[in-house]
């Protein structure tokens, strides 16, 4: 196994894998051509997470409603343990996310980062940038027609 990666970097790739469209992850994963041996520690399981908000955005927490989440844990032959927690109900998505998480902790990390994590991160950022730009185009520019003191 490679040296332990910083939690912040691992948090980032796990969050990316959680949010990425399942089809995009599947396509990039297939393109990588890796099929590492692994044993399941927790078979893919669909469940719910209660999402909380805060009263008045800043006050005490309250329960807003649940969202579907699928999780999976596995161990590679080399011993690296990967976890996948992904939005939605796609078991293949969770399994692939766990495999990517595990491989990112091995000497295959650079290949997986380049082939899967970075393209997914960039695609999510690009999609967000497009929405931001469309929102920006609807920003109101006020101009004064006439002032009352005339």
């Amino acid at each position: 196994m490679a040296e332990m990666t910083e939690p912040s970097e691992r948090q980032a790739w796990m969050s990316t894998l959680a949010k990425a469209p399942a089809a995009d992850l599947a396509r990039l994963w297939d393109g990588l051509g890796l099929a590492p041996e692994h044993e399941m520690l927790r078979a893919p399981e669909v469940g719910a997470v209660m999402v909380r908000g805060r009263t008045g955005a800043t006050g005490a927490p309250f329960n807003l409603g649940e969202m579907t989440v699928t999780r999976c844990s596995l161990r590679l032959g080399c011993g690296a343990v990967g976890h996948g927690y992904v939005q939605g109900r796609d078991k293949a998505h969770a399994t692939t996310a766990a495999l990517v998480d595990a491989l990112m902790q091995t000497d295959k990390a650079d290949r997986v980062r380049e082939g899967v994590v970075t393209p997914l991160t960039e695609a999510l950022a690009a999609a967000q940038a497009t929405r931001r730009a469309k929102a920006a185009a609807t920003r109101v520019e006020f101009f004064t027609m006439q002032r009352g003191e005339d």
Binding site: E45, V46, G47, A48, V49, M50, V51, R52, G53, R54, A57, T58, P61, N63, L64, E66, T68, V69, R71, Q128, R131, R132, K134, A135, T138, F142
Partner: peptide, 30 residues
């Protein structure tokens, strides 16, 4: 929904960090 096991609860969402599609105020023009 009742058939799903609950994995836990999220941290309270930070709406101050929302990526806004829409954001209007009826009290402050600027």
């Amino acid at each position: 929904r009742t058939t799903l096991p609950r994995f836990g609860a999220s941290a309270p969402v930070e709406t101050g960090e929302m990526v806004c599609d829409r954001r209007i105020s009826a009290t402050f023009k600027d």
